[in-house]
């Protein structure tokens, strides 16, 4: 059972990362600009956030910021903040740096996930494999979800998968302690 939860957890996290990326992308494309800076901001901010999550928050401290749960919550908050700002101030390019910071928060979550989940599997290749398989699945869900339901899909999907991730983190943490 614990093994299944571990696999499910990593795959669902992969789905969540891909969903966030596709949802950020489509929302910015519709409500900000389809121009290159938008795509560059998403990619750059996500990668930088990832590096911050991997390197700048030491795992050996007792700081609350090492927690995966916290970053999942912050990530969801960041996503809906972007959504809110885009709807309140559509096509305002001067808000691009703000969006970059918020997307970076989601990137930090991805970095924290990899550091904290390294010991879940015996080899890191399994961790990367399962996460990437989840990412592919999430990319397909994100793409087809947007194609079929448009912006309505982007409104709910990150929240639903964010909740799933949170619950699975709690499950994995308690099974590890057990």
């Amino acid at each position: 059972m614990a093994v299944r939860i571990k696999y499910l957890f990593v795959i669902v996290m992969g789905i969540f990362f891909a969903l966030l990326q596709t949802c950020y992308f489509f929302q910015l494309e519709i409500w900000l600009t389809a121009a290159y800076p938008s795509f560059l901001t998403i990619t750059m901010a996500w990668l930088l956030g990832n590096v911050v999550g991997l390197r700048l928050i030491s795992d050996k401290t007792d700081s609350i910021f090492v927690s995966r749960r916290l970053w999942v919550i912050l990530s969801v908050i960041a996503y809906y903040s972007v959504l809110g700002l885009l709807h309140l101030f559509p096509y305002q390019m001067n808000l691009l740096p703000v969006y970059g910071v918020l997307i970076g928060v989601s990137g930090v979550m991805a970095g924290r996930f990899f550091v904290r989940s390294r010991s879940i599997f015996e080899s890191s290749s399994r961790l990367f494999l399962m996460e990437n398989n989840g990412f592919i699945l999430g990319w397909i869900i994100g793409f087809l979800g947007f194609v079929r339901f448009g912006i309505s899909f982007n409104l709910f999907a990150p929240l639903i998968f964010g909740i799933c991730c949170y619950v699975l983190i709690v499950s994995v943490s308690s099974s590890t302690k057990g």
Partner: peptide
């Protein structure tokens, strides 16, 4: 985990 953090961040 330390090597994952350092090596993965270098790739990023």
């Amino acid at each position: 985990a330390d090597s994952l953090a350092s090596l993965y961040s270098i790739e990023l």
